[in-house]
């Protein structure tokens, strides 16, 4: 056979191989995707909460998508403390006003952004939250101030349905 000549057989070889590879890949996807959150898990994606029983300085923890969500009715002192922080001092700079739609209500996922533990409230060096697992300190706006966590506590999507009810998710 002459050197490097593309024959009909080469063509059949490559196309057959390509079809087999594409077929295998598309068949592999269901085996991978079956592990992703299923329909029943996604169906639990929103929660409504009545805020009336919570007085200033009190927090509640609700479950949303299997995760704890902290809802804290902040005191004026906490709000002031969160507002006066210099953004340049923050590892993950965010304004308090971007984190709380209504400054009185702080709603955030109660999961440390380091490795997923639940931080303890009103503890730590910044009067906010403290994660006992690896020592991350969050402030009164749930922003990371000290420790290994890379980002601030996550703010879930939520809306105030009316003055006293919010819907998370």
């Amino acid at each position: 056979m002459s050197e490097k000549q593309v024959t009909r057989r080469n063509f059949l070889y490559v196309t057959t191989g390509a079809f087999a590879a594409a077929g295998a890949a598309s068949l592999a996807w269901p085996f991978v995707d079956q592990m992703n959150p299923d329909a029943s898990v996604k169906a639990l994606a929103s929660t409504e909460i009545d805020l009336r029983p919570i007085i200033p300085g009190q927090s509640i923890t609700v479950m949303w998508r299997g995760k704890p969500v902290f809802i804290r009715r902040r005191t004026q002192a906490e709000i002031d403390e969160a507002k006066k922080v210099n953004l340049a001092d923050l590892p993950h700079p965010e304004e308090d006003s971007d984190r709380a739609q209504n400054p009185e209500w702080l709603v955030m996922v109660g999961i440390c952004t380091h490795l997923g533990c639940v931080p303890l409230g009103q503890k730590g060096d910044y009067n906010g939250w403290f994660c006992p697992c690896h020592g991350s300190h969050y402030d009164t706006s749930g922003r990371i101030r000290k420790g290994p966590a890379p980002t601030n506590l996550e703010i879930p999507d939520y809306v105030f349905l009316n003055e006293t009810t919010i819907k998370i998710g």
């Binding site: 991978v32 592990m35 992703n36 959150p37 898990v41 998508r65 299997g66 995760k67 999961i111």
Partner: peptide, 8 residues
């Protein structure tokens, strides 16, 4: 999320 098959 893929590993968990959920959000936690």
């Amino acid at each position: 999320n893929w590993l968990w098959g959920g959000y936690a």
